[in-house]
Design a binder for these strands. Structure first.
Ligand SMILES: [Mn+2]
Ligand SMILES: [Mn+2]
Ligand SMILES: [Zn+2]
Ligand SMILES: [Zn+2]
Lengths: 137, 137
DNA sequence: AATTTTAATGCAACCGGGTTGCAAAGTTTA
DNA sequence: TAAACTTTGCAACCCGGTTGCATTAAAATT
């Protein structure tokens, strides 16, 4: 095969299997973040463990990033092309309490925090809850 | 009985049972946040469901607040006397990747976020990861 | 004080998301 | 082609959380 997904996988040194292409396709077309159980439902017949390992592989390769939005299931989203999953790439996430969708607010960097003395920073997870613009109308 | 815990419970209209006093004692003496499984271990013989419901009761009464620190288990901490669990009482939490303890940074309010148009704010969870001052030395 | 009503507790079972071991199938390399 | 390695599918398991229900304890009523 030789489509855009295939190429994207190759460019990250991930072997482009059929399953991985399908998962990458779903993740690419997805407007909001998606959980493993939700991903499972996108396929008629797909193994949870395979999807799980696919997500892990993608995350390690920084093709996707994960968000713990407090819903019980970890959510995943495609990284922007410019993203290297460095601290400066961290952005705020938004969980709509009405439609239950969690979205990347890619334009909103997580604000810097002045930690107390002798604390060092590694990363941060910031999830805002509220009503999204779609649900607001 | 008639100790400080007893009184604190009464002041929040929580019936001061023996179990509740014991749990409140543990939570009060606890320097960092604690999870339900950890709380269970603090007792020789205590029922998970009872502890679970005790935590729920305490949280409803705003005696404690909860933090999802991404560790898999929800963490709980006593609220400060001044806390009403309103948006303005929200503070940053810190998870030390070395000692695995999650602490309230009660002095550090969660920074305000300018949400995109037509998004409304309800609450926010902000957890910083890094090394705490104890582990730094 | 005895009885009725209400609330808390303990136990067991269950749920859902996540994770792993292992054998089968598929790929790559020699 | 044969050997080595990788991915996949299946099943089983773990763990935190949650619920139904009978028992016990406490509070209210008589
Ligand atoms: Mn994101
Ligand atoms: Mn706190
Ligand atoms: Zn919404
Ligand atoms: Zn530490």
């Amino acid at each position: 095969m030789n489509n855009e997904f295939d190429n994207k996988l190759k460019s990250r040194n991930i072997k482009p299997t059929a399953m991985r292409e399908l998962v990458l396709k779903v993740l690419t077309e997805q407007m909001t973040t998606i959980s493993l159980p939700e991903l499972e439902q996108k396929f008629d017949r797909a193994d949870k463990a395979t999807l799980y390992r696919t997500l892990k592989t993608f995350e390690e390769s920084k093709l996707i990033h994960s968000v713990d939005d407090g819903s019980g299931a970890m959510k995943y989203a495609i990284c922007q092309d410019s993203c290297h999953c460095n601290p400066e790439d961290l952005h705020v996430h938004f969980l709509c309490t009405k439609c239950k969708q969690t979205s990347c607010l890619s334009e909103i960097p997580v604000p810097e925090i002045n930690l107390p003395d002798n604390f060092s920073f590694e990363s941060v997870n910031m999830v805002v809850k509220g009503i999204c613009s779609n649900c607001k109308k």
